[in-house]
Computed example of a mutant assay.
Amino acid sequence: MASVAFTAVTAGALFSCKPKGAEAAVSGDAAAKAYVAPGKYDEFYNIVSGGFNGQIGIYGIPSGRLFRIVPVFSVGPESGYGYSEETKPMLNTSHGFVPWDDLHHISLSQTKGEHDGRWAFANGNNTPRLARIDLSTFRTAEILEIPNSAGNHASPFITENSEYIVAATRFSVPLDDQDGDVPINTYKDNFKGSISFVSINQTSGEMNIAFQIRTPGVNFDLSRAGKGKSHGWFFFSCYNSEKANTLLEVNASARDKDFIMAVNWKKAEEYVKAG
């Protein structure tokens, strides 16, 4: 009898949860606010980094609908990305064909400090790369490898009118124009950081490395470009100002505080043009 009663209650519960129609399915306040009817547009798009899958995801808000997975630093068999003659070369690097990466951060193109819906930029954290995704097609349009860099974490951060995106080293390296085969115990002397300023063509979106700034061998983490009164400045957070290269969990946090580095990129432009 106990078994029969349990079955009856379960059946009754299932029956009572069955929606009577489409209106009943969205009759609750939360569901009604999130519901977007087929053929209708969401108010916002959420562009999400995929981490080690090397992709980005495009979600609608408030519906939560997944519209597309965009392969960026990884191949996409569904669309042929990374296999076709047009897209396979984008995954070639100075280290060979690298069809994976750790995609950490996304920045959207801006006009007057507001997102303008033209492009999204993404970083490759392992093999230092930047990618541009065309938001009119939601497809990867371009990938640029960054020299003099390792661990491209402080990237890609953008100025308020999309003049530049920056890519800063998380891990310092011997620079490419020097002898790269040096002992790790000479880290403080021979390993340097770099900040790459990558210009953006305002018509095509094409990326080019405009100039690089050599820095002390600290680890840059995140960055933001100034807006309004602080336009023309970039601000970078860092750690490992100790310039440690062993037991980093201890030695790279020996000091109570690190520092913020401020770069006047307008002035840097002037110096580059002056030679």
Rank of each mutant, 00 (worst) to 15 (best):
residue 4 V to L: 14
residue 17 C to Y: 13
residue 156 P to V: 03
residue 221 D to H: 13
residue 140 T to A: 09
residue 142 E to T: 02
residue 104 H to S: 08
residue 168 A to T: 09
residue 171 F to R: 10
residue 122 A to D: 03
residue 123 N to F: 04
residue 98 V to W: 10
residue 176 D to L: 06
residue 273 K to R: 13
residue 230 S to H: 08
residue 231 H to Q: 10
residue 143 I to K: 00
residue 18 K to N: 10
residue 208 N to V: 13
residue 63 S to V: 07
residue 85 E to Y: 12
residue 85 E to N: 15
residue 120 A to F: 08
residue 106 I to N: 09
residue 36 V to Q: 07
residue 224 R to E: 07
residue 65 R to D: 10
residue 54 G to H: 09
residue 36 V to G: 06
residue 35 Y to E: 02
residue 72 V to Q: 03
residue 196 S to K: 04
residue 210 A to Q: 12
residue 196 S to L: 02
residue 198 V to M: 00
residue 180 G to A: 03
residue 43 E to Y: 04
residue 100 W to T: 02
residue 260 I to T: 09
residue 81 Y to L: 08
residue 6 F to G: 04
residue 149 S to D: 15
residue 115 H to W: 06
residue 151 G to N: 07
residue 121 F to P: 02
residue 189 D to V: 10
residue 43 E to I: 09
residue 45 Y to D: 11
residue 10 T to H: 10
residue 212 Q to R: 12
residue 68 R to T: 12
residue 129 R to F: 10
residue 67 F to L: 11
residue 43 E to Q: 11
residue 129 R to E: 01
residue 225 A to P: 07
residue 24 A to V: 06
residue 166 V to F: 02
residue 77 P to A: 01
residue 77 P to W: 04
residue 247 L to S: 15
residue 109 S to I: 08
residue 194 S to N: 13
residue 71 P to N: 03
residue 61 I to D: 12
residue 113 G to E: 06
residue 103 L to F: 06
residue 52 F to C: 12
residue 135 L to G: 00
residue 198 V to T: 11
residue 255 R to Y: 14
residue 69 I to H: 03
residue 137 T to Q: 14
residue 17 C to I: 13
residue 128 P to I: 01
residue 151 G to Q: 06
residue 13 A to P: 05
residue 99 P to V: 06
residue 230 S to Y: 13
residue 262 A to P: 06
residue 35 Y to A: 10
residue 231 H to N: 15
residue 113 G to L: 09
residue 23 E to S: 15
residue 99 P to K: 07
residue 116 D to V: 08
residue 80 G to I: 01
residue 136 S to T: 13
residue 157 F to K: 04
residue 254 A to Q: 14
residue 251 N to G: 00
residue 244 A to T: 05
residue 244 A to W: 03
residue 271 Y to G: 02
residue 155 S to K: 05
residue 75 V to R: 15
residue 94 S to P: 04
residue 130 L to G: 00
residue 44 F to A: 09
residue 12 G to E: 11
residue 194 S to E: 03
residue 74 S to I: 02
residue 245 N to Y: 15
residue 258 D to M: 04
residue 133 I to F: 01
residue 253 S to I: 04
residue 132 R to A: 04
residue 128 P to Y: 01
residue 270 E to W: 01
residue 199 S to Y: 07
residue 22 A to R: 11
residue 7 T to A: 15
residue 15 F to Q: 14
residue 248 L to R: 06
residue 111 T to Y: 10
residue 208 N to W: 02
residue 257 K to Y: 11
residue 186 T to P: 00
residue 243 K to A: 01
residue 141 A to N: 10
residue 122 A to P: 03
residue 149 S to K: 05
residue 234 F to G: 02
residue 181 D to Q: 09
residue 60 G to S: 08
residue 202 Q to K: 15
residue 89 P to A: 04
residue 271 Y to A: 13
residue 226 G to R: 00
residue 86 E to W: 05
residue 93 T to C: 10
residue 274 A to D: 12
residue 253 S to K: 11
residue 124 G to D: 04
residue 198 V to H: 05
residue 5 A to P: 03
residue 248 L to V: 03
residue 262 A to C: 13
residue 165 I to Q: 05
residue 230 S to M: 12
residue 30 A to Y: 11
residue 122 A to S: 13
residue 256 D to V: 12
residue 30 A to P: 08
residue 153 H to G: 07
residue 61 I to R: 02
residue 266 K to V: 03
residue 25 A to Q: 09
residue 204 S to R: 09
residue 267 K to W: 07
residue 168 A to R: 00
residue 28 G to V: 03
residue 185 N to I: 00
residue 233 W to R: 08
residue 73 F to Y: 12
residue 255 R to P: 00
residue 7 T to M: 14
